[in-house]
Amino acid sequence: MIRALAMKEWRETWAFGALALGVYLIYLGNLTGLGEPVLRSVSWLIRGADGKPTELPFIQDNFASTVGFVGCLLAIALGFRQSAWEPHQGTSLYLLHLPLPRRTILATKVLTGIALLLACSLAPILLYGTWAAWPRTHPGPFEWSMTDAAFRAWAMTPLVYLGAFASGIRPARWFGSRLLPLAAAFLPAVLTLALPSWWLMGLPIAALTAALLWATIVQEAEARDY
């Protein structure tokens, strides 16, 4: 049952992931100098995707912020698609009547979305890191610890996703007030990026925020009318 539900979610959202991957690949093509000239020529259309090769990968470029920016856009798109779209189409009446607890249905949706989000945002980090670790690809040294900032940005994206999901599932009269959970998710997301000790401060803040957003999603899904 859960597999069928996860497959449905995957079928409905893979295009978002493919689009984000496409943007990442154009960006990586520019950063590594391996990209096709045609793709390089259109990369200026996408904010942050027109990077240039540097001597110190991950340090001198804006890779982490681009991963964070594109990851946030993907997180917002996925979160809204998976939460607001079904009630809008009326299919939530069909979905929620399936003989599965509502919490299980929600958890399957959220976990599928987060898995897709993390996989899509992890791919450019690993690809770029592998390229940087390859001998004679760039003049500077490389250590995997140089990817820390990118991994922090990557780890922050699920918070934005949960905020978008909580906003999408929340019926509200005004669009502005509907977006409150998403807005509330941004501050801890930025804190996890900015605080000096990620393991001691960033991770607990992220975990606590994720737990609060999940509780909001479950409470809203149980209490709202469809």
Binding site: M1, G90, Y94
Partner: peptide
């Protein structure tokens, strides 16, 4: 339960919709 307007997933084929629903029963 057949809700008003017969909401189903439009992107599915009939066979896919049957496989999807069948997995829950």
């Amino acid at each position: 339960y057949l809700a008003e307007g017969h909401p189903l997933y439009g992107w599915m084929t009939i066979a896919e919709a049957a496989r999807f629903a069948g997995a829950f029963h």
